[in-house]
């Protein structure tokens, strides 16, 4: 009866498998279309560890993905706990960031935080600044505020909805029982509510972490060209007119994929071990 799985698995194996193996071969130096035929060579992977620019890109990947993931999870979980069991208009509307593409989120961030954007005009109206240049460079500055805000804005409702879904399925009376038996609000949160929602938080953490480590559009468009992450570096190398460097892009992408898989596996393993309520599910 497992026949129904056939088409899906075949399609994934064909398209996904072809993509993985084609790119693996090219990252190992097999790219006759661009006049590169050095298969097998680890040259392109070695460059990842010797090129200081790529080491820096790896560091930036972590420093842009980890804070965004953590902040999004924290705010999203809090929002998920604040959602009512019955959907009202507010809880419908807050899904909106989830339903627009990342490029629209980038457009929104730009319209609010860019030099002549809404925030600058508001500050000018309040007399804080006089010229658009006086606004700190939020988008393409060193701190990467634009990337952080965009990722958090887009992902917060995702975590919130996962958490809220677990809450509606869970036994709502448990919290009341704990209160009746004298638990404080903090104790109820620590021993009843959080263990209930932890599996949802962990699932959201895995998916948002995987996305943020490999994100391209947001850091590419809001990074100002000075804070390239691994994904952005791979994009730049691949779209460079010099096609002979394309195996390098694929080596970066493969390393990134491996890193993402390891990071998510580590996160899930740590979650199983340390978080209450996750083990045994």
């Amino acid at each position: 009866m497992a026949l129904g799985l056939g088409p899906a698995l075949a399609l994934l194996a064909l398209v996904f498998g072809a993509a993985l193996f084609g790119s693996l071969a090219q990252s190992l130096g097999h790219a006759p279309a661009y006049g590169v035929e050095a298969f097998p060579t680890l040259r392109y992977y070695r460059a990842l560890f010797t090129d200081p620019a790529l080491a820096l890109a790896a560091w930036r990947t972590l420093t842009s993905a980890l804070p965004a993931t953590a902040l999004g999870l924290l705010l999203g979980t809090a929002l998920g706990l604040a959602l009512p069991p019955r959907r009202d208009l507010a809880s419908s509307v807050l899904q909106l960031p989830l339903l627009v593409p990342y490029v629209v989120a980038v457009a929104l961030t730009t319209s609010w935080l860019a030099g002549g954007g809404v925030l600058a005009r508001l500050l000018a109206a309040a007399g804080v600044i006089e010229a658009p240049q006086e606004l700190p460079r939020l988008l393409d500055g060193r701190a990467g505020i634009g990337v952080l805000i965009t990722l958090v804005w887009k992902q917060m409702p995702f975590t919130a909805l996962l958490v809220a879904a677990v809450r509606t399925g869970a036994d709502a009376q448990l919290e009341e029982v704990a209160r009746v038996f004298g638990a404080s609000r903090a104790q109820v949160l620590r021993y009843v509510t959080l263990p209930q929602v932890m599996p949802a938080v962990l699932a959201a953490a895995a998916i948002t972490l995987a996305y943020n480590l490999g994100a391209l559009e947001v850091p590419l468009l809001l990074g100002g060209g000075t804070r390239d992450t691994l994904a952005v570096s791979a994009w730049r190398v691949y779209t460079d007119p010099d096609a002979t460097q394309r195996p390098q892009a694929l080596a970066i992408a493969w390393t990134l994929t491996l890193g993402v898989v390891l990071a998510v596996a580590a996160l899930l393993a740590a979650g199983r071990r340390w978080l209450p309520g996750v083990a045994g599910r």
């Binding site: 398209v15 996904f16 072809a18 993509a19 993985l20 084609g22 790119s23 995987a210 996305y211 480590l213 490999g214 994100a215 391209l216 994904a231 791979a234 994009w235 691949y238 892009a249 694929l250 992408a253 493969w254 990134l256 994929t257 993402v260 898989v261 998510v264």
Partner: peptide
């Protein structure tokens, strides 16, 4: 799990 960029480059 696989970054869209990696999938896109492979494809």
């Amino acid at each position: 799990l696989v970054p869209e960029l990696a999938l896109a480059l492979g494809l």
